[in-house]
Simulated scan of single mutants.
Amino acid sequence: MSIRHGLLALLERGPRYGSQLRTEFESRTGATWPLNVGQVYTTLGRLERDGMVVPDGEDEAGHSLYAITDVGRAELRSWYERPVDRTSPARDELSIKLAMAVGTSTVDIREVIQSQRRHTVKAMQDYTRLKAQALETEPTDRADVAWLLVLEQLIFQTEAEARWLDHCEARLIRLSAAKPPLEQAPPPAPPASAPVPVAARAAGRLRRRS
């Protein structure tokens, strides 16, 4: 999640102060990724350092306002245009947990999977319930549509995670059922022919001559 670009997008609509940016950010994303005011002001400080925002006086209540600059608008356009990089995915705690559990003999990995599946399915049901509530009236406000898009992404994400957990469990079942092939014993060597005594060979020659 890019907080800096989210704040730039909000500032493009006009000057705003820190807590106002936090409120609008959480409203736009349905508080899925809550921010604290400290994060907002830290990010604004970095944006100001990079020339993307500037202080813009105060409002009537004495709040310090920030405004986006041309550099900030250019960065925002570039952010919208370039795809999100998936070649270096963020660390996923669940994937790391399962990868570690596979190599640990003291952990029941199937129980880990089942516990996570219960949590994932419940989360998916909660998101689906929120979506149904959001669709009780056709969303027309842009903020409502933005929240609906985020909500649907969360539903798709949890559905995919549930399918992946099913796949992990099936793979582990196949792994536990597989047995190493029995080593085939080498075929027995042909019996060595018994040595013929010298006397017997000599007797045979004499018979042939007679």
Rank of each mutant, 00 (worst) to 15 (best):
A134M: 05
D166V: 09
E136D: 12
L94S: 08
A203V: 13
L182H: 06
S115R: 00
T87G: 01
W79F: 15
V37A: 02
R117C: 05
R129I: 03
S193P: 01
V145P: 00
W33R: 12
S88W: 14
I155E: 04
L65K: 04
T137P: 03
A123M: 10
V54L: 08
E138H: 14
Q184R: 15
K122D: 05
V40K: 00
M124Q: 04
D92M: 03
S88T: 15
A134E: 02
A132P: 00
G57H: 04
A146E: 07
L21G: 01
N36V: 02
T23Q: 05
Q20V: 04
L44P: 02
P190Q: 10
L151H: 05
H5F: 09
L44N: 00
V112T: 06
Q125F: 08
R49S: 15
A203H: 12
S115K: 05
V54F: 02
G51I: 14
P34W: 00
A99G: 11
L76M: 10
G51H: 14
L135H: 04
Y80I: 13
L149G: 14
T120Y: 01
D141W: 08
E24Y: 05
Y41N: 08
V84K: 09
L7C: 02
M52K: 10
D92K: 06
R110Q: 07
H119W: 13
A200M: 13
L135Q: 09
Y66M: 07
A134H: 01
V121L: 11
V198D: 06
A146N: 07
A170L: 09
E12A: 10
S210F: 09
T104Y: 06
L148I: 12
L76F: 06
R22C: 01
V112K: 00
L206I: 15
S88H: 14
S78G: 08
Y127S: 04
W164G: 07
G38W: 03
V40W: 00
G57F: 02
L11M: 11
A101S: 15
D50E: 11
G51M: 14
D126P: 00
V198R: 09
E138K: 14
T104K: 11
G72F: 00
I3Q: 07
A162W: 02
A61W: 09
G30V: 01
Y127I: 11
T120R: 01
C168L: 03
T137R: 12
D70C: 03
R73C: 00
P188A: 14
T43N: 03
G62S: 06
E81V: 13
Y66N: 02
R4N: 07
A178L: 15
R174T: 14
V53G: 00
E75P: 04
E81R: 09
